[in-house]
Design a protein around this nucleic acid. Structure first.
Lengths: 239, 239
DNA sequence: TCCCGGACTTGACCGCAGTCAAGGCACGCG
DNA sequence: CGCGTGCCTTGACTGCGGTCAAGTCCGGGA
């Protein structure tokens, strides 16, 4: 990749360059974005976006990890997505033109590059290819949401199986007993990501273990019966 | 509105003209679409799209009503949306380029105008304003999906209250006792739309009635306490 | 007028999962 | 070495909601 020009922060430039919304944009346009961006550094736990606020800006994650979630009336959380460097934040509200539909907070110390919503529309208008990338991204988000809805309709062991299977597709390592994976987060965090609580997740692990489908050793899981896990995670038959 | 040219079906032309994805397209472009479209007439109950099929076409509803839903492993349905004349069908898969993420079936006899997925991309490339409309539509779909996820996290009486409130915003008529609305579908259908079954919906109606929040007379409901219904439907403070 | 079928309601039952409470286990610090 | 603090697990309880079964109401047809 082209290095950042000297007069902009290189971490900001790199994150913007990697953002999937405008892969096809020229380096000069990225530099312009980097110059226009308002850089914000936040501590762990900072609330970046509150549901219902009018959306006038969106951001790109420069460093750290952001979690996007919905807050139920009783304070219960529903996790939507986890964002890392290069991922766009709050772009939906920017494009839909209304209020933020969800909350975002930093789960690690983080740096964000904020841009005016209108900036994104200008990029789209200026470059057909960017329009295409934005449309693809949005369409894929909708597809992912249908998956989220699907998942929420399953019971917890099935949701867990689904997670294990999809994670195995990514980081699965064949081992002597089966396919070995690392959970990638604490079980408490996984419980939240699956829309449940640690106690129930623990029982779900126990049940899959009792049925000889998996073995659990701390944060590592060996999938003994991949077919059964895939089936439990509800007919995920695609590649 | 400009009438349809004589050499294309006027119902098809009208439905295409009203499609929200390309409001700004020229009449000539609509005529071209109408000519290119493959017209399909289906009976009530026909399955139009099956989840997992490769997406090579999308459609616009010319007449009738289409229901889009997800099918759980056990055959349980999750309703996503209901489409009428002028609404686009399966546009997500066309733009995401993969397989259909949901099923669609006709709930009444229906007529559809099918177009190649590539046709939509051509329209987008040819007209910046169309790109803008498509992006807005997609962004709003994502926002709506966050609402669906939110709703599924509520208990059934709250989901019902949410539906009643939103419907009241649309077709509510002030009456002597309160705001009167027509459910717009059978209670069995409403149960499915709310992700539950008739028995549970019936109990939810009974509970709201017992709490003096509504009165029910067949397919008509009088909302006695709009504030309470709005609050139950979970702090819907907008518009 | 009688009968039938479909929509809706009500009651009884039960399983899943969230909550509360009580432990077990590992790690780090004094 | 002992203790505290998270993280995880297990048990007991409860409430929501889906299922099964029965019963009511209403409109259409013979």
């Amino acid at each position: 990749m082209t290095p950042a020009p000297e007069h902009v922060r290189s971490d900001v430039w790199t994150a913007l360059r990697e953002c999937r919304l405008w892969r096809s944009a020229a380096d000069a346009a990225i530099t312009e974005l980097a110059r226009a961006a308002r850089i914000e550094e936040v501590h762990r736990g900072a609330r970046l976006i509150a549901e219902g606020e009018p959306a006038v800006e969106f951001a790109v994650v420069v460093a750290g990890r952001i979690r996007v979630f919905h807050l139920g009336a009783d304070g219960k959380r529903i996790a939507f997505e986890t964002l890392d460097a290069g991922d766009p934040v709050a772009v939906i509200a920017a494009l839909a033109g209304g209020r933020h539909p969800a909350n975002a907070e930093a789960v690690t110390p983080a740096i964000l590059a904020w841009l005016a919503s209108e900036t994104l529309w200008e990029l789209i208008a200026a470059d057909d290819q960017v329009a295409r990338e934005v449309i693809s991204d949005l369409a894929n988000r909708v597809v992912n949401f249908t998956g989220v809805v699907h998942t929420l309709a399953l019971d917890v062991p099935s949701r867990l199986a689904r997670y294990l299977f999809q994670r195995a597709l990514g980081v699965g390592q064949p081992s002597s007993r089966g396919l070995e994976i690392d959970l990638g987060m604490s079980k408490t965090d996984l419980a939240e990501a699956l829309g449940t609580v640690p106690e129930t997740l623990s029982r779900a692990f126990a049940r899959l273990r009792d049925e000889q489908l998996i073995e659990v050793q701390g944060g590592r899981v060996i999938i003994l019966d991949v077919r059964a896990i895939a089936r439990l995670g509800s007919g995920y038959s695609e590649g």
